[in-house]
């Protein structure tokens, strides 16, 4: 049972950039840049008092969320968490809808009934998660179960953090998915912290991918700041799942570069960690890879960034102008028709 660790320096990229689809590469870049632009805009909105409560961002998670989501077909399912704006945007979630969610607007995916990071859209194949982490894991096994039940080859990609791996939901989902051979890929976003809790207090396991051994499934650790490394590892898991060979784990190692949420100054994080990790901005790294390979030129990259900035500004304008929800009818929908 293959459980391995791929670290960027000693692992030459599987497929040369020149042999990859440039359209896909540019799209991954665009969505990563957009993710960063929207989150930077939302941080400003948080500081300016536009948002209801706190703001959870995924700085330095863009390579994981977009790298992973970009392996899916449009009819596949996804169960992301609070660091995965990039995965939502990849599937077509509108930036203004996400802002509306953090503002409690009528136009949010839940019409203001839920808010902040609790957004999703089943029409895009995205499960809208509750607070409890990782409650999306058992649900993701169910979406995969339904695919298998119907003889389809749809896959469900689920994400969770390092801290989430300690919960029963993680263990029971991995147990169920491996015993029932469900078409799941479980992505663990190891960002060194769970709120204030550092890795060494979260788990005595050498890696999170190594937990796969116990479930009898493949597990791999990759550089979570390298979009292609994530993409390739998840693509392998997706192909396996689609072929009916069951689930697998992909651990992406990165750093949570902001506080747990924007209210959190995160002064428990050693400063040298930030210094080290700030050299590994996944968006910048990927942009440089594409520029070096001639897939993108400097001007085009600049335009992508400027377009993303304008889109984020327009999204804010729309979300701000959108109405707040009406309390009438608040009791509707407790039960389905």
């Amino acid at each position: 049972m293959a459980t391995r660790t791929r670290r960027k320096p000693d692992a030459p990229a599987g497929t040369a950039i020149a042999d990859r689809d440039p359209v896909l590469l540019r799209r991954i870049h665009e969505v990563m840049v957009l993710t960063r632009a929207v989150e930077d805009r939302m941080v400003a909105m948080y500081k300016g008092g536009d948002l209801l409560g706190s703001l959870y961002t995924g700085h330095w998670h863009e390579a994981i969320s977009v790298g992973a989501a970009s392996t899916l077909r449009t009819d596949d399912y996804m169960a992301p968490i609070h660091r995965d704006l990039g995965a939502h945007l990849w599937r077509g979630m509108e930036p203004w809808q996400v802002m509306a969610s953090f503002m409690g607007k009528a136009t949010s995916p839940t019409g203001g009934r839920d808010g902040t990071l609790h957004y999703g859209r089943l029409d895009l194949g995205i499960y809208n998660l509750p607070s409890h982490i990782p409650a999306n894991f058992p649900v993701a096994t169910g979406m995969a179960f339904a695919s298998k039940y119907r003889g389809q080859d749809r896959v469900c990609l689920a994400f969770c953090g390092d801290g989430s791996t300690s919960r029963a939901d993680f263990h029971e989902s991995l147990t169920m998915a491996s015993v029932l051979k469900l078409p799941n890929v479980f992505v663990i976003e190891n960002n060194q912290f769970a709120y204030s809790t550092p890795l060494r207090m979260q788990s005595n396991s050498e890696t999170f991918a190594i937990k796969a051994v116990a479930y009898g499934i493949p597990g791999v650790t990759v550089d979570g700041t390298d979009a292609l490394a994530v993409h390739d590892a998840v693509a392998e898991g997706v192909a396996r799942a689609r072929a009916g060979e069951g689930p697998s784990i992909v651990e992406g190692v990165t750093m949570r570069m902001h506080g747990h949420a924007e209210h959190d100054p995160a002064d428990y994080v050693p400063k040298d960690m930030y210094d080290e990790w700030s050299k590994k901005d996944p968006v910048e790294l990927f942009e440089n890879v594409l520029i070096d390979a001639g897939v993108l030129d400097g001007d085009a990259a600049k335009k992508v960034r400027e377009d993303a900035r304008q889109l984020a500004i327009a999204a804010r304008r729309k979300a701000l102008a959108d109405p707040m929800p009406e309390p009438s009818g608040i009791e509707d929908g407790v039960y389905a028709d």
Partner: peptide, 22 residues
């Protein structure tokens, strides 16, 4: 469907399966 002893797991699984039409 026989399951492991995983009440959280199979109840959440049921939720996911129901969401997509089962």
């Amino acid at each position: 469907v026989d399951t492991p002893i995983a009440e959280t797991g199979f109840t959440g699984l049921a939720a996911g399966a129901a969401l997509v039409g089962l």
